[in-house]
């Protein structure tokens, strides 16, 4: 296995008093595309937020890109290097598509010259550039958020349901972007319910249930086995 990008050992993360993650063990190497699967409320989003340095590490140990998650300062340094596409699109309704992408790229210390190509690539360039975000459809908002992510050039991509709300072309585009990023040395962690789609993309499927990792398949399965208990890698079944 290549050098680990994500190393979690018994990671606990609390949302208020609720242990959204209750002792998760996970190791993801450089260049992997790990697919997170599990029922609603299993802790997938919290796992992504933990790896982004947003959710606190309340117990256990965790390192992402060499940053110790238990240290506040380290977590802040980590955030600059990863890209998180969460449930929200993080766009200002009153600003245009271009103004949003430009602000966030500048805020993320990204390359401003990449804005134009990124918007064009995601299909929110041209006419849509000058449209206020409040006038966009849900799918177009997601595309704009993806454009921001592309300009950010993260080393680690954390995508929470990236296909949600997108049309077929948009979904293909997401897969293509992830492929490309990984090919150029990035790593990706993707939470998705769309097994068929991501199966081709993932190098590994990670099952998250009850706030911990129940099983891992080193290769993507051809079948949609949600409660899978086979092919134990370094997870544990309870």
């Amino acid at each position: 296995m290549t050098t680990p990008v994500i190393e979690l050992a018994g990671a606990v993360s609390l949302i208020g008093r609720f242990p959204a993650l209750a002792g998760a063990d996970l190791s993801v190497g450089t260049g992997e595309v790990a697919l997170l699967q599990g029922p609603n409320g299993a802790g997938k989003s919290t796992l992504l937020r933990l790896c982004a340095g947003l959710a606190p590490l309340s117990g256990g140990a965790g390192t992402v890109l060499g940053h110790d998650l238990s240290d506040r300062r380290e977590r802040r340094a980590l955030r600059r290097r990863v890209g998180l596409l969460g449930h929200g699109t993080a766009l200002y309704d009153d600003l245009t598509v271009e103004q949003n992408v430009r602000f966030w790229t500048a805020a993320n210390h990204g390359d401003l010259s990449t804005i134009e190509p990124a918007m064009d690539r995601l299909g929110v360039g041209g006419r849509l550039r000058t449209v206020p975000v409040s006038g966009l459809s849900a799918g177009q908002r997601r595309r704009t958020a993806m454009a921001v992510l592309v300009c950010r050039r993260p080393v680690l991509w954390l995508l929470d349901e990236p296909h949600a709300g997108l049309d077929a072309a948009g979904r293909d585009l997401v897969d293509e972007l992830v492929h490309q990023a990984v090919a150029s040395g990035a790593t990706a962690l993707v939470a998705s319910h769309e097994l068929d789609r991501v199966a081709g993309l993932a190098t590994r499927v990670v099952h998250v249930v009850g706030g911990h990792i129940t099983a891992q398949h080193s290769d993507a399965p051809a079948h949609g086995d949600l409660g899978g208990r086979g092919d134990l890698d370094d997870g544990e079944a309870t």
């Binding site: 947003l54 929200g88 699109t89 966030w104």
Partner: peptide, 9 residues
């Protein structure tokens, strides 16, 4: 999610 994005930036 704007607050999170600001923290991430």
């Amino acid at each position: 999610g704007n607050l999170d994005a600001l923290r991430m930036a």
